[in-house]
């Protein structure tokens, strides 16, 4: 029963935000010693399982290729392509972005998007501009926050439920590395990646539907907001903002 303290070390370490590498190292040593291994056996256990799980770090071999392509403008090209979606409504635009993020991550391009890479400079401003265009006025703060939050969510959901369809990703290789070394199996990364596909589709349908519903929600809340403040609904299209959006897109 006492070996379970090792699990406790992991939980406490992560909850108190210690350096994850250190937490894992300490938990390994503690668990090994509590499991009645002597220090030499603990070292051997670390060495053996590290040798057995080298496949987990194989994904590093992808970095030079992606690095080369980024140097030649891979991210810029992705932004240009996304920038062409400027005519869609906010919800539709974010749903299409979710799909793009999933498909590219499934092909191992998980670094072309991200909060700093695409959401802040491109996705959020374009979604805001689209929302103002369709609802016909500047968004009140609360709705602006909502649109931005949904922009961040479409990036994160797309990444999480796309990348596992690619074989050279940490999570898939962690599974095969762990299972093959601990339980002496011959599990192949492709088998795991195949099982990620149905869940990628679930994520697309569920989050995509929620993003599409965002349009209606925005319109309803805008009407409510206008009624609360007894303002006439503004109708002048905010062309200047839209133009800003597409300028951002070319950056």
């Amino acid at each position: 029963m006492i070996v379970l303290l090792g699990v406790l070390v992991v939980i406490l370490g992560f909850v108190t935000r210690r350096n994850p590498v250190l937490v894992v190292g300490v938990a390994g040593i503690v668990t090994g010693l509590l499991g009645k291994l002597n220090p030499q056996e603990v070292l051997a256990a670390f060495g053996k399982s590290f040798a057995d799980s080298r496949s987990v770090t194989v994904f590093a071999i992808v970095l030079p290729v992606i690095g080369l392509l980024e140097r030649y403008g891979l991210r810029e090209q992705a932004r240009t392509l996304i920038g062409r979606l400027g005519k869609l409504s906010a919800g539709r635009f974010l749903a299409v972005y979710l799909l793009i993020r999933q498909v590219t991550a499934a092909f191992g391009l998980n670094s072309i998007g991200g909060p700093a890479q695409t959401v802040r400079p491109l996705v959020a401003p374009m979604a805001e501009a689209a929302a103002e265009r369709t609802t016909g006025g500047p968004l009140p703060d609360r709705l602006r926050e909502k649109v931005r939050s949904y922009s961040a969510s479409s990036d994160t959901v797309g990444l999480f439920f796309g990348e596992d369809c690619f074989i050279a990703i940490g999570s898939i290789l962690l599974i095969t590395g762990f299972v093959n070394s601990t339980y002496h199996q011959q599990l192949e990364p492709t088998e795991l990646a195949l099982w990620a596909i149905p869940l990628a589709l679930c994520a697309l349908v569920i989050h995509g539907a929620r993003l599409l519903l965002l349009d209606r929600k925005l319109e309803r809340e805008m009407a409510l907001h206008a009624a609360e403040n007894e303002l006439p609904l503004p109708h002048q299209a905010t062309a200047s903002r839209t133009r800003n959006g597409s300028e951002e897109a070319g950056k």
Binding site: V24, A27, G28, G32, A45, F46, F50, V56, T57, L174
Partner: peptide, 19 residues
Amino acid sequence: LLLPQLLAVLGSIFAVAGV
């Protein structure tokens, strides 16, 4: 970059120690 491999190691140690 190293964290996934170290977690695989931890999993093996958990298994060896009888967690």
